[in-house]
Design a protein around this nucleic acid. Structure first.
Lengths: 193, 193
DNA sequence: GAATTATTTCGATGATCATCGAATTGATTC
DNA sequence: GAATCAATTCGATGATCATCGAAATAATTC
């Protein structure tokens, strides 16, 4: 999850908090001093410092009855390593990458699972064809009659459906024997070109 | 000014926008696809993409009637150079660094410019003394009588005021001749220790 | 221990903003 | 040119949040 990351950016997504970071980068300051410099009430500055502290960007040191805040340079340096490959990957940890295909299939199927029509658009047609191809067992060979028997459960125009499956290389055909089989899975990322 | 910087962080300070960045880091996507993947309406995704686009993080390419968005890797790499010395300095470009001292002086002076009292706290006393020392011309030498004549314009207890000025090394004293002069300016950052 | 001082917490308020649905725009297809 | 489709814009709504003042905490000084 990227809750930590979003909190980090939220902490820096405020003009006054950025100024606090900039000020603390030069020297330490008390809440009272920062409030005077930023023309804010101490309670507001305290709130900002709490948010910065939550993500480890600043820390406090008690001195007499002051709270002297300092920048945590280590946390800042972490920023320089941001957006590595892993960070970008972590952002989509909880994203369902198949949601789009499922939505497309849902839009083009009737409640009984048959197809309303064949999508005209390439990437939607592809999503529907991936849905249909699952009816074929990997490795098993089918003759044309068997293929049509399966396809008619989805769509009346079996010829068109079969042609598209072959065209998108989801169904392979032995041109001599008239045999068909499901093509090996390719990790298709659904790219648009 | 740090308006640009704050906009950059604001753009990334949202969970769904971070997911969009993560997704676009792997491949390009249309608005419709992103909406399905994130379970949002297209109008919402369009809004997010506009915000990301404003800070140069993504860009669009028209393809048929799709808008295919892609990540601007250059903008991401800029992040790795973030928080250099100049960036930190730029955050406080429009901060009035003397505001604290001015506030302290204001709190301890009467409308006519005389001191209500000498602050007990070190850093506030220092601010007030810096205010008083400006009455002395740099380079000019004063005898004790002249010093007192100036100081009494600020505070009745000239002895205490003079002692503090000397203690903080704002006023220098020649121990033989009983002469005083204003010390050379030192760039005091008002640090707390 | 009473008074002072800085900070934090709390509750309220106003502004900002994510999200949605509806309407509009822009482009494509037939 | 009419119909279709994706994207954007617009207006409204609800949530989040920056800011403040007041009250509570914590620490220090006398």
């Amino acid at each position: 999850m990227s809750a930590e990351l979003v909190a980090f950016f939220k902490a820096l997504a405020d003009s006054n908090r950025l100024k606090i970071v900039g000020l603390l980068a030069q020297q330490t300051y008390s809440v009272e001093q920062l409030a005077a410099l930023l023309n804010l009430r101490p309670s507001t500055v305290s709130h900002h410092l709490a948010r910065l502290s939550e993500v480890g960007l600043v820390s406090a040191r008690a001195d007499s009855y002051y709270n002297v805040y300092q920048l945590e340079e280590a946390a800042l340096r972490k920023t320089n390593l941001l957006f590595s490959q892993e960070d970008l990957a972590s952002m989509i940890n909880d994203v369902d990458l198949d949601a789009y295909d499922r939505q497309v299939v849902g839009n083009f199927t009737n409640p009984d699972g048959t197809l309303k029509s064949l999508p005209a658009q390439r990437k939607k047609l592809e999503a529907v064809l991936h849905y249909v191809i699952t009816a074929f067992k990997p490795g098993k060979h089918y003759n044309e009659e068997q293929v049509n028997k399966i396809l008619v459960r989805y769509y009346d125009d079996t010829a068109s459906l079969r042609r598209e499956l072959v065209g998108f290389k989801l169904l392979q055909r032995d041109s001599r024997g008239g045999e068909y089989w499901r093509a090996a899975e390719v990790d298709n990322l659904g790219d648009i070109e």
